[in-house]
Structures are given as structure tokens and as C-alpha cells.
Amino acid sequence: MTLPMQTSFTQRSIFERFPFIPALGILAVLLILNGLAEPNSLSFRAITGLTKTYLALMFLAVAQSFVVFSSDIDLSVGAILSLVNVSVVVMIDQLGGGPAAVLFACFAGILVGVLCGIFNGIVVVALRLQPIVATFATGILFTGIALWVLPVAGMPVPQSFWRTYGGRILDIPFVFYVVALLGLLIWLAVRTRFIIQLMAVGDNRLAAYQSGLPVTRIRIMAFAICGLFSAVAALCIIGDTASGDPVVGNAMTLYSVAAVVLGGTALSGGSGSMLGSAIGALIIGLINSFVFFVGVSSEWQNFAQGIAVLLALMAGVLVTRRISK
């Protein structure tokens, strides 16, 4: 004896627990479309290549999710990525380029990312500035530092770095281990008390404050974690491009926001899914490859991609809203 109301309730709670399901649907459709346009695009090799290229955006989208959950936004993630990118490349070079130097530089780079995030947090939360304009300003500041660290693109990293990133361990491409690690981190993160507090803060800041949550600390933490994941994205970019570039990430900022929305997270905060954001990044990648494979002439490609991303964004918003109604 199942009452209809109960069924709809169960359906709703499934979508509430897994808000990334619509994104997964779009991903599946895009995979099929890609396969129809060019069967080779679903080969192991091609999927590995796609992952290699879009891994950085996946991390950046997950980074953006944390601040979006608490109803903030970080328009400096791209600049943080650039700053970490050049910091790591220059540090490896200064320390001689050995394996120890590479490891040390990676950890130091992650620390740089976290510090940038904390700075953002203090500016937005403690000084109470509006996140859109404040993080745009801090982004300019970070770009300034990145240009000071490395004024022009260049300076290659040691072979060991990109050979590892593009290589295989036990016959499985290295990037898939990183994807698995990202999945594990997300799996662990959603089980923490912090994420529940973060959602509470994003859902209703005043209520969260009145019920005794340390709202300021939680929001600054979200910015710090955002900086951390942006730094990891920077390491992925180095693995992919094998060199430093002080403005490499700046164009990625808006894509990170788009990926978060495609993943079924509302910009108003309080709910959403990190896994969805990672899927959102892959959706952007698959749209780009589909437009390429379907044979759109080169000058129309950007336009077709733009239209497809816009439609996917709109569909994402509409589907997410219908489900949460």
C-alpha cells in the first residue's frame, strides 16, 4: 500500500540527496551524442585525453562549489590558479628541479592557494564587502603578484612532472587516480559536520548565526578550501601544459561558475553537490568536443559552443527548480 504522496516524497528525497542526477543525465546524453558523431571519441584514449584537459576545471568547479554553498562567490579562483601555477614553476626552477624540489614546490603551491583563499575570506567576510566585486579586486591583486613572480609565460617544468601527469601507473592513466582521489575527497567531505554547517549558513545566514554557528569562521573556511582546490587545479594545469603562465587561469573563472550551475547547485546557496560541479566541468568539455566532432566549421565553433552552454545552463536551472518544487 504505497500512497501516491509517499511516492512523490521518495522521488523528491532522492533528488534532494543526489542533486547531480540531472547533470548525470546531460552527461550521458552528451556521451551518446559524441559517440554518434565520432565513435572514436568514446575510446579509452580519447576519454583519457578529455580527462587530462578538463581535470583542472573539475577541481576549480569543486573549489567554486564551497563558496557557492555558503551563498558567496569567488571570481578570483582563476587568478589564484595562475598565481599558484607560476609560483610552483618558479620554485621548482629555483630549487634545482629534482624530485624533492618538485614535491616541495607542490606543497608550497597548495599553501599559497590556501593563503589566497583566507585573504579572500577575510576581505569578504570580516570586512563585509560584496563577494562579486571584492573577489574581482583580489583577483587583480593576485594577478599582479603572479606577474611579479613570472612576468611572461614560459619556463618549462622538469620532465618528471608532466611525464607523471600524462603517464600511467599499473597500466591505468595517472589522471584517473587523481579523479578517484577527487571522488574520495568529495565522498569524505559530504560526511563532515562542516558541510552541514556550511549549507546552513548558505540557506539562512541570520538563522545560522542565531542558532549559534560560528558563521564568520565557516565562511572564511569555505574560501580557504576554495583556495586549496584552486591550487590543486593549478598543479593539473602544470601537468597538462608543462610550463608557467601568469594569466593561464583567468579565463577559467567564469567556466567554474558555469560548471557549478550545470551541476545542479543554485547560486543562492544552501544546497547543491560537489560531484555535480565536477560533472558540470566534464559537460563543458563534452560540449566542446561534440561541437568539434560534429563538423561545425571552425569559425562557427565558438558560437555553437556558446549556444550549447547557454541552453545547458538554462535547462539545468529549470530542471533543478522543477525537482526542488
Binding site: 579586486a137 583580489t138 583577483g139 587583480i140 591583486l141 593576485f142 594577478t143 599582479g144 603578484i145 603572479a146 606577474l147 611579479w148 612576468p151
Partner: peptide
């Protein structure tokens, strides 16, 4: 570099 930093 300095210009961007100062502007931000």
C-alpha cells in the same frame, strides 16, 4: 605587476 597589484 606592480600596477595590477596597486590597482587591486
Amino acid at each position: 605587476a606592480g600596477r595590477q597589484f596597486a590597482f587591486g
